[in-house]
């Protein structure tokens, strides 16, 4: 009988955790003002976009990173002034630590000044990406 309960418990746990992740993943969250920090081209090793920059943290073992990469490249190609920088998280554990990246993909959306304004954890959704972008472009950094 023990086994049946363990199986039921495991399935409930999986469904609850998966459902919870499904709801929150891929949404753009505004970075709280107190925590907003700043990244520049020198640290990223790549030029920032004039309007905004997607800094994506990826891992080799991460499948949703590929879909996110494709989506962000597409968006960055469509609009001028956008840059998309995809970082292999393993190689930049300094940034992973500094920005509290707990899993991949995580995308930081930087404004024209390199300040982190939004954060998307999990496979990014297009509507969320465009929504966050709109906020940045219509409300440029001071």
């Amino acid at each position: 009988m023990t086994g049946v309960w363990i199986v039921l418990g495991a399935l409930v746990l999986a469904l609850a955790f998966g459902g919870y992740r499904q709801l929150g993943d891929g949404r753009a969250k505004v970075e709280r003002t107190g925590r907003q920090s700043h990244l520049d081209a020198a640290r990223l090793g790549d030029e920032l976009g004039e309007q905004a920059t997607f800094v994506q943290f990826s891992a080799v073992v991460c499948a949703p990173c590929r879909t996110t990469h494709r989506l962000l490249s597409e968006v960055a190609a469509e609009e001028p002034g956008l840059a998309h920088i995809d970082i292999n998280a393993e190689t930049r554990l300094d940034l992973v630590d500094e920005f509290g990246i707990t899993r991949t993909p995580t995308v930081l959306l930087l404004d024209s000044g390199g300040v982190v304004r939004h954060r998307i954890v999990g496979a990014a959704r297009k509507s969320e990406v465009l929504g966050a972008l709109q906020q940045l472009v219509s409300r440029p950094a001071a």
Binding site: V7, G9, A10, A14, Q22
Partner: peptide
């Protein structure tokens, strides 16, 4: 085995 089942179910369902 229970934890492996959680991981496998997450993979299969989600």
């Amino acid at each position: 085995a229970g934890l492996a089942l959680v991981a496998a179910a997450l993979n299969a369902v989600f």
